[in-house]
Design a protein around this nucleic acid. Structure first.
Length: 418
RNA sequence: GUGGGUGUAGCUCAGUAGGUAGAGCACCAGGUUGUGGCCCUGGAUGUCGCGGGUUCAAGUCCCGUCACUCACCCCA
């Protein structure tokens, strides 16, 4: 038997309905907030991701599905969506009509990590991006949108965490201070962090090794080193969140693994997903559009882990599964072909109709109707045809009525409505 | 990439000191010659993850391998 690829998964009927509901809820919220859907390809030139996410990040270094196509150019299965949306914004000069553009997109991403709870090699994200606004208020809008979506989906046990990473103005200063601090406490750090402290010192801040956490307890906080503009930005984020009654905690260790983030970063965290605490994350990336060759455009966005969201939602899959309105139980060949005609007509009328195509006993057909959750069963056999009427049984009340064969479809529709 | 746990029927799992497999649920049929859920009776189902080794004999012991899973790492 051929099995699916490791870390990939099928989303089967029964679960798909829940995903559809989540997507529907998200779409309608996005529309209400003025976001437009954008669909971007699943592969890009490798260079796009390498340049935007950062050459030194784990994603680019060891997690991307990268391979040469038949002509030898390197392409990559997208590990995230923001880079592509930026590329599209630039390539199609979407800023020309109005620099302010708000997009959302839903689709699969690919990272070749070791699978575990809440982590797959093909996973799904709901992304939102806002281009052309540098006001901190849009950062707040994104967080507010996330919190609203989660509450609409009955997700509990989530918390918004926020931080600021500064800008090219202030971050280097902080990095220098942090490096000094790290060097002075090298002895207490884990081997990974010793390596990290030179290449990407920020990352040491969110190491989970207890010894590192302890060593980092007195590490300098970037929040103390923000330049006046970044500091003002962060203050506004906080007061606006308060004003909108969005609870949050400031998490100075919230660093995030992509190089393009500036200023505000945030995560929605949950305790229900084992080691994977982030259900959604995002932040501002003011330098990215320019770095990719577009106009100097501020931007901010987030990604929701759809797989993770589906796992922690309080909604029940069963509430979304559709059951047949009516099941046609036919006895004998003549009845079968008649029932088949009616079934097709009913389906066209929007009445969800099922039937058995074999030569089964009434008992077994009733059993299947029950199993499928059919609300009614229509019994048609030789007797009924002779008498010119069929029997409609309500499966919950067990009530049976006869209805004339003439204009059955209309008659059934009328009965089901009442 | 590293470590732990687990692989036996469609599902959940037993399998005792090595003696070529079992339960519950689900499925099918009948009891009810044309009426579902409850009950009763009967039935089908397995390359015991895969490959190799030890043995007269391996689901059981040994080695390897693969998959799933959880954790590290990292992130959504």
């Amino acid at each position: 038997m051929i099995q699916l690829i490791r870390g990939f998964k099928d989303i089967l009927p029964g679960e798909v309905e829940l995903w559809q509901y989540i997507e529907k809820t998200a779409r309608s919220l996005f529309e209400d907030f003025g976001f437009k859907e954008i669909r971007i390809p699943i592969m890009e030139r490798t260079e796009l991701f390498a340049r935007s996410i950062g050459e030194d990040t784990d994603i680019v270094e060891k997690e991307m599905y990268t391979f040469p196509d038949r002509k030898g150019s390197l392409i990559t299965l997208r590990p995230e969506a923001t880079a592509s949306v930026c590329r599209s914004y630039i390539q199609h000069k979407l800023y020309s009509k109005d620099p302010v553009q708000k997009y959302f997109t839903i689709g699969p991403m690919f990272r070749r990590e070791r699978p575990q709870k809440g982590r797959y090699r093909q996973f799904y994200q709901i992304n939102a991006e806002i281009f052309g606004v540098d006001s901190p208020l849009v950062d707040v809008e994104l967080i507010f949108l996330l919190v609203t979506l989660f509450s609409r989906l009955s997700v509990s046990d989530v918390e918004a965490h926020i931080n600021s990473l500064g800008c090219p103005e202030c971050r280097p200063k902080f990095n220098a201070v942090l490096s000094d601090f790290l060097t002075s406490s090298t002895g207490n750090l884990c081997s990974d962090c010793v390596r990290r402290k030179d290449r990407n010192p920020l990352r040491v801040l969110d190491c989970k090794v207890p010894a590192c956490r302890e060593a980092m307890a007195h590490a300098p906080s970037i929040l103390d080193y923000l330049c006046p503009a970044c500091s003002q930005h962060f203050e506004t984020v906080k007061t606006a969140l308060d004003a909108m009654n969005v609870p949050f905690t400031i998490d100075k260790r919230l660093v995030r693994g992509l190089d393009y983030y500036t200023r505000t970063t945030f995560e929605i965290q949950t305790g229900s997903l084992g080691a994977q605490s982030a259900v959604a994350g995002g932040g501002r990336y003011d330098g990215l559009v320019k770095a990719l060759g577009g106009p100097d455009t501020p931007a901010t966005g987030f990604a929701i882990g759809l797989d993770r969201l589906a796992e922690i939602t309080g909604l029940n899959c069963n509430d979304f599964i559709k059951t047949p309105d009516i099941y046609l139980a036919a006895l004998g060949e003549k009845s079968l072909s008649l029932a088949f005609e009616w079934k097709s007509a009913l389906c066209l009328e929007g009445v969800k109709t099922e039937m058995d195509f074999g030569d089964k006993s009434l008992k077994s057909q009733m059993k299947r109707a029950d199993r499928l959750g059919a609300k009614h069963v229509l019994i048609v056999g030789d007797n009924e045809i002779k008498q010119g009427s069929v029997i409609l049984r309500n499966m919950t009340t067990k009530e049976q009525v006869t209805i004339p064969i003439e204009h059955v479809v209309e008659n059934i529709k009328a009965k089901l409505r009442s």
